[in-house]
Computed example of a mutant assay.
Amino acid sequence: MGILFAGPQLEFEQIREQWLAAVQQVAARGVFVGGQAVTDFEAAFARYSGSASAAGVGNGTDALFLTLKALGVGPGDEVVTAVNTFVATVEAIHHTGATPVLVDCDPDSYLIDAEQLIAKLSSRTKAIIPVHLYGQMVDMSPWLSIARARGIAVVEDSAQAAGARLEGKPAGSVGGAGCFSFYPDKNLGALGDGGAVVSSDESLLAKVRRLRNHGGETRYSHDSPGYNSRLDALQALALSMKLERLDEWSAHRRQVANCYERHLADIEGVVLPAHRHDESHVFHLYVVRLPAEARENVRRSLQKKGILTAVQYPLPIHQLPAFRHLGYGAGDFPIAEFCSQRIVSLPMHIGMDEEAVAEVATQVKNALTLKPAKINGG
């Protein structure tokens, strides 16, 4: 039958009947954009995220972009972020007109390197976007006070970290704002696109709310040029139902990660991810490193057994054609470049159990002992 890589369909089965019944009620009222379903979710998600308020938006990319726009980020400014992130993080910066300034990662956790981040700060730095990558929160304590003293905004890219808590503080609540994606395969995923911004800065969120709704909070009132980026009611219904289960699902993902550690620990050639063994990692992805020359052979071997894997991300931002204009070259981010050739994401979702993890580990071990298939150019 195989092993799924991610499990949004398994999550949907847990809310199916409840969601369909709620959809019928929304349909009867005819309120498909905004309305009580959205405001109820925003309130619940703000409480869950340890913030005063939340604003639902169309997707996670818009959450970042609209937050930066609300902060006044624009041409002439610099925004510091991780080089090993999904392109959306840097797209959001680019579309404000600001310059993305990239930082290499820690080789064990893959999170942004704190010392290098501090070194990249300049008089033009308007914001920092730490990326809570793969579900693990960045410890911002080494540089947060520096940012605040210089008046630099901190916008947490929490797209992969809904439910994570570091020293009791939820992802998105440590900086000035937290930005979330509710893409279906996220730990808190909608049934389509969706996103949110959380903050305890009511002035900032008021600006986000205006920007998401054509520049005004009420119909036909446009205080400034805005955008169309609203969270749909049907998505908000699903998110509210999943939010009630999120802590349970996060605990299950951590159990799966523990199983992986037990079953993969003694396999030569497998490097396990570093983490704090607490609630600061919700394992949106379980990412290991393999020898570069063996990775694709292992992936093909697992696929033949019905086990799907992925690579997040095959190229760091500076090597993407879209951002070559930033002027970085090969070797500028050696850790990210090294890791990108070796990382692989193994199946991780609420349907995984120890038997499934053991099977994945067995097939990884078997594949590593096979002679790699000949690859063009090597």
Rank of each mutant, 00 (worst) to 15 (best):
G378D: 09
R212P: 02
E115R: 14
A127F: 14
A177K: 03
A294C: 04
Q9I: 06
S345W: 03
A238I: 13
T85N: 06
G351A: 09
H95Y: 14
S340N: 07
E279K: 12
K69D: 10
E217I: 14
I152W: 14
N84L: 15
L302I: 07
R289E: 08
G168A: 13
A52H: 12
C179A: 12
D106Q: 12
I350Q: 13
A310Y: 06
G189N: 07
L20Y: 13
T125Y: 09
S240K: 15
Q9Y: 10
T99C: 02
P100T: 07
S199T: 06
I343Y: 02
A238T: 13
F86I: 11
V344C: 13
D106N: 14
T96I: 04
L144C: 03
H284I: 00
I335N: 11
R210M: 10
H252E: 00
R324T: 02
A373D: 14
S51C: 15
T362K: 15
H275C: 07
H284T: 05
I146N: 09
R230T: 13
P8F: 05
I343D: 08
E244Y: 01
H281T: 10
R16M: 08
Q341P: 01
L188W: 03
L4N: 05
T61Y: 11
H318V: 01
V31F: 03
R29P: 04
K304N: 06
I3V: 12
A171L: 11
F5L: 15
A206Q: 01
H318L: 03
A190R: 06
N376S: 12
N59I: 04
F86W: 02
D104R: 08
P225M: 03
V198N: 02
V287R: 00
E296L: 05
V101P: 04
R165C: 12
D139Y: 00
A274D: 09
P316M: 04
G329P: 00
K305S: 08
M1A: 12
I118M: 08
S141L: 03
Y48A: 10
H252G: 00
P314V: 04
V26H: 01
H94A: 09
P170L: 14
D278C: 06
N376I: 13
Q24H: 14
S229L: 10
L272P: 07
G195T: 01
H275K: 08
P291N: 03
A119Y: 02
V287Q: 01
V57T: 08
N258K: 12
A177T: 05
E156H: 14
L302K: 06
A63N: 12
E167F: 15
A171V: 08
G35Q: 08
G2H: 11
V83G: 09
I118Y: 00
S49P: 11
G50H: 02
R324N: 00
Y260M: 07
L20E: 15
L66H: 05
L133N: 08
S301E: 06
V198L: 02
L308Q: 09
S145E: 15
Q25M: 07
G215Y: 11
G216A: 11
